Computed example of a mutant assay.
Amino acid sequence: MIDLEGTTGACRLEFCGEWFEVSPTEPFVVGREGPLGLDDNPYLHRRFLEVVLVDGMWWLRNVGSRLSATIAEPSGGMQAWLTPGGRLPLVFGTTIVIFTAGPTTYQVSLETAHATFAPTGVLSGPETGTTTVGQIALTTTQRALIVALSEPLLRDPGSTTTQIPSSAAAAARLGWAQTRFNRKLDNVCDKLDRVGIKGLRGGPGRLATQRRARLVEYAVTSRLVTSADLGLLDGSMLDAVDS
């Protein structure tokens, strides 16, 4: 974390280990245009996100027309989905932003000098085969499915780009048949949709890749799964649990 003490109103953005100072007088653009050099992805808007200072407060704005971003503070106590036309104040000292354009998922961090709110922890239930995070209870195999899809981001969160596995690749990683994987993916997405997590329902205009990407973004930023769960990808750990 960069030391921002003494830099009143300062805001900096980190991407793949490189830091960018955000000007208080003009928007900092994230997209194919701007200082991040993401111009090699034709699925990304030229201007997607903007970081701006308005009346002494930093805001993140989605100025794109199709893509959304998942916003969270590092402990997972706050998580939001920023849709086109939306904006959120950067009220925490550190804010994580994850978004997907085409097959590629990106993660950036934003740090501000003066946090308005302090993060709170996430409560998890005991390991009894079912894990509860907030009001979301997952079976071990449901959580393993999410870990299989989230594995690249969990193993290397600071990577430049992350390819979310296809359903076939994730099923193979778990040693499951494709039909079993698809059934459990439907169950997980339905469960999260019922508690208000947006972007996980199928339908016109919502591709399977978009649903998987949204699931990964939510799960990682809310800490529904963490790197500590990677052991679930060891098939022997799943042999004795529900099918």
Rank of each mutant, 00 (worst) to 15 (best):
V52G: 01
T70K: 09
G134N: 14
W81C: 11
T128C: 15
I71D: 04
F92P: 06
P103G: 12
L53A: 04
P74W: 00
A113M: 02
A80D: 14
L88T: 07
Q79G: 15
Y106T: 00
S75N: 12
E111V: 02
M57S: 15
M57T: 15
A113Q: 04
D55G: 08
T100R: 08
R46C: 14
T120M: 10
G56P: 12
G125T: 07
W59K: 09
L110A: 05
R87E: 11
I71N: 02
T94S: 06
L88H: 07
T116V: 14
T139I: 08
T94H: 01
T105W: 03
G129Y: 02
N62S: 00
T128E: 14
T94F: 05
T83P: 01
G121P: 03
L67H: 03
S65W: 10
T140C: 11
P119C: 09
F99D: 04
F48E: 07
P126F: 07
E111W: 11
G121H: 07
V52I: 13
Q135F: 15
L138S: 05
V51C: 09
V91R: 14
G93T: 04
P103V: 13
V97Q: 06
A137I: 00
R87M: 10
A69Q: 05
V54C: 05
E50M: 09
G76C: 03
G85V: 11
T132W: 12
G125C: 09
G77C: 06
T100E: 05
G77T: 01
W59E: 12
T83M: 06
T112K: 06
S65Q: 15
D55I: 06
L82I: 00
R143C: 10
T131L: 14
T112L: 02
E73D: 13
T130S: 14
M78K: 09
G76N: 09
F48D: 03
S65D: 13
L123I: 06
G85A: 08
T128I: 12
L123K: 11
P74V: 04
T141C: 12
G129H: 13
A80W: 14
W81R: 03
G121C: 02
G86I: 07
G125N: 09
G85E: 02
A69Y: 01
A69F: 00
Q107N: 08
V91G: 07
T139C: 06
A80F: 15
P103I: 03
V97A: 00
L88F: 07
